[in-house]
């Protein structure tokens, strides 16, 4: 059985051009335990971000760390999408 839920993704760097507010809200289908994966979120957000190469080279993160594609994400999660970095 699937359940719908939302994930909020804040966009950084060059990804900001895809949202005036700097974030996108995704409505997904989760499993019985109300989770989905980072990979599923990537698939969903690719419908809103047309620049595939930039998206492929970007990673998802929470407030503490960069996430693996197989990491489980809970309903209501707030994530960040980080394109290639160039500080200094």
């Amino acid at each position: 059985m699937t359940h719908s839920f939302q994930v909020q993704v804040e966009l950084f760097g060059a990804l900001r051009r895809f949202s005036d507010s700097g974030q996108v809200v995704l409505n997904l289908l989760g499993n019985r335990s109300h989770t989905t994966t980072v990979a599923a979120i990537r698939t969903e957000i690719s419908k809103k971000i047309s620049q595939n190469e930039l998206l492929r080279s970007s990673v998802f993160a929470d407030e503490r760390r960069v996430l693996h594609e197989s990491d489980l994400i809970e309903n209501g999660a707030k994530l960040a999408l980080l394109p290639p970095v160039c500080g200094g």
Partner: peptide
């Protein structure tokens, strides 16, 4: 995770390429 956008004398701006 830091990004920079350059602003040019021409008035244009551009996000710089980086490391994934």
């Amino acid at each position: 995770p830091i990004w920079k956008k350059e602003h040019y004398e021409s008035g244009e701006s551009e996000w710089l390429q980086g490391h994934a």
